[in-house]
Write a protein that binds this DNA or RNA. Structure first.
Lengths: 352, 352
DNA sequence: TTGTAGGCGTTATCAA
DNA sequence: TTGATAACGCCTACAA
């Protein structure tokens, strides 16, 4: 048996081997036309004998669809984006799509055109845009460019007419976190925010503010500190916050990493959590239950976001293929969940 | 301007528009044959006018190469695998490959054949196998199957003749960690290991043991506890370890997540880190500097692993295309780095 | 330097 | 139920 068959086995080889025409083999494989049972058996045997693999490039060429979805993402070294990608992969597998992955090194990067061109040239059936909305890095969405591209589903962005979006509800998540702190009887609830050029950061800030105002509380600027999502900025953030408002007894932190920094700062300052300071994070990363103390956090349903994104894309692709109306709503938002742990209510079991 | 051009613009449209033949357009695009400067300009203009995108499916079909690399990975919700994937993506971009991503939900899964068939059918130029070696989930590597597949580069696996492997040196990393603890004068150094069906876990265990034995120390079984990589098992692990060997004053933990659990257990037991117990982790996740106390950890060079994997694959692909000998060594191993922090040497700045 | 023709591996159409 | 034939969009000899 030759190790490198000089001639990749094609559908024609199979046809010859089974004494039928290539068309019949194709029919047996795709099931689009009936094939006699006896013939089909012969064909299947030939396929096994020859180790035939259909060439999906050729198939895509004639079918005008590649069964491929382009995924443009960034920040994969964070937990959230990875998690979403897993959801995307699972559902794509289920629906028979392959994933063409494209990572943007910096989400602000302007090489959007290059990426879109590549995906377009590879004739992906659709695109999932999983790059965080930062500054005006979505400006191109309004452009006429969009019409010349395959269907796109956007993740976590400000709703925009004519654009399919799947969101996780950052506003609600922040509200739930803040409400929880209010219900614990906390008087002065600070916020350590993400950079406000991020849409998600703005949404979480808005949730925190609206919740406080609705309760007749103060939500002034010096209760807020800007972080950069990293733990270091959470640590510095708490220091600054306490400097400005020493009476603070709770803080909502816009992500878990910064919350880790907050916990560290609290330890250094000798503040007890949650007695002196209650802390809520966001993202519910896998290791927050083992922080010291275990961190109360908001869990966005990222796996579902990924799955829903592919489902939505699929239905758009199908609708367009059949020139039907699109039945999916333009914006779909998944509600989060608050997971309460020691950093707001518990005494961590201490001492032996 | 029609929103859905009924007829995707092809190289022939461009040719007509520019008053040349399709072949000339192709030459202008690929640069494989000279084209008069004046003609080329006309062609480029036509391409812009028409918004032409070459069809890479068709190109792949005739060229017999798709400029695509299949990446099979798992555990993407952990930091390590994501990091490696980023490296893979970066280098693939640089070399002009697109990435076809395939995630295995369980790394022990037996559906290896399905995955390989899909990749094979899509005519990827090569494959990167980034699934952790667990149990005998690499058994297929020895099979004749391998010869019927495109070139494959394996990540983190036990070297095997005839197989290209890119590794990070788990054995050395564990040795460095243990050596560090020895040099601090620690007397009784425990190990919290990963599941021993993982090759990497065995390597790290071996490093710990050999280092201790080389120093004339004890490395007996009751200095070892098995974990499952998750924080919970680290927490339970330290409890068990101290139960068995109360005199323990240092522990090497096979990953950072479990180390987080160990820190938590130490707090609960009232043990001071590092005074009573020095702790070293593995992976150097981004948030370990903000653990309490900051965690000393081994940093594997994962980004480089990803890049090197693609480079290696690329050179194998090229060599095979030209029927040359493969010039890359079969096994390439990248050494790790030990990052020392408070959990072994420091006093975390405490109180104000 | 450019044009023409044939083929890459499939599927779809039209007959048989 | 099956077979021949013509696309799908591109590249590459071979000719001009």
């Amino acid at each position: 048996m030759a190790v490198h068959p000089s001639h990749r086995v094609t559908i024609i080889d199979v046809a010859r081997h089974a004494n039928v025409s290539a068309g019949t083999v194709s029919n047996a494989l795709t099931g689009k036309r009936p094939v006699a049972e006896e013939t089909r058996a012969r064909i299947m045997q030939a396929i096994r004998d020859l180790g035939y693999q259909p060439n999906l490039l050729a198939r895509g060429l004639v079918n005008q669809r590649s069964q491929t979805v382009g995924v443009v993402a960034s920040g994969l070294d964070y937990y959230g984006p990875s998690r979403t990608l897993i959801g995307i992969d699972q559902e794509a597998n289920a629906l028979g799509y392959a994933l063409l992955l494209d990572l943007l090194h910096s989400p602000m990067e302007a090489n959007v055109d290059t990426v879109l061109n590549v995906l377009s040239a590879r004739r992906v059936d659709g695109i999932i845009w999983a790059v965080h909305e930062i500054g005006n890095n979505r400006a191109w969405v309004a452009s006429e460019r969009l019409n010349r591209l395959p269907p796109i589903v956007f993740l976590t962005m400000h709703p925009q007419p004519g654009v399919a979006v799947v969101n996780t509800d950052n506003y609600l998540g922040a509200k739930m976190a803040t409400q929880h702190l209010l219900e614990l009887g906390r008087c002065s609830i600070g916020l350590i925010s993400g950079p406000l050029v991020w849409w998600e950061a703005r949404e979480r800030q808005r949730g925190w503010r609206d919740c406080l105002l609705a309760a007749g509380r103060e939500a002034s600027d010096n209760l807020t500190v800007l972080g950069d999502w990293r733990a270091a900025s959470g640590e510095a953030g708490l220091m600054a916050l306490i400097e400005a408002r020493p009476e603070i007894d709770a803080v909502f932190v816009a992500n878990d990493e910064m919350a880790l920094g907050v916990l560290r700062a609290a330890h250094r300052l000798g503040k007890r959590v949650p007695e002196d300071l209650a802390v809520v994070g966001y993202d519910n990363m896998p290791d927050v239950p083992y922080f010291w103390p275990a961190l109360t956090s908001v869990r966005p349903r990222l796996l579902e976001v990924g799955k829903l994104a592919i489902q939505t894309l699929h239905s758009i692709v199908e609708a367009r293929r059949q020139n039907q109306e699109i039945s999916t709503p333009e914006v779909q938002t998944l509600g989060p969940e608050l997971i309460v742990r020691e950093s707001t209510v518990g005494d961590p079991p201490t001492g032996k």
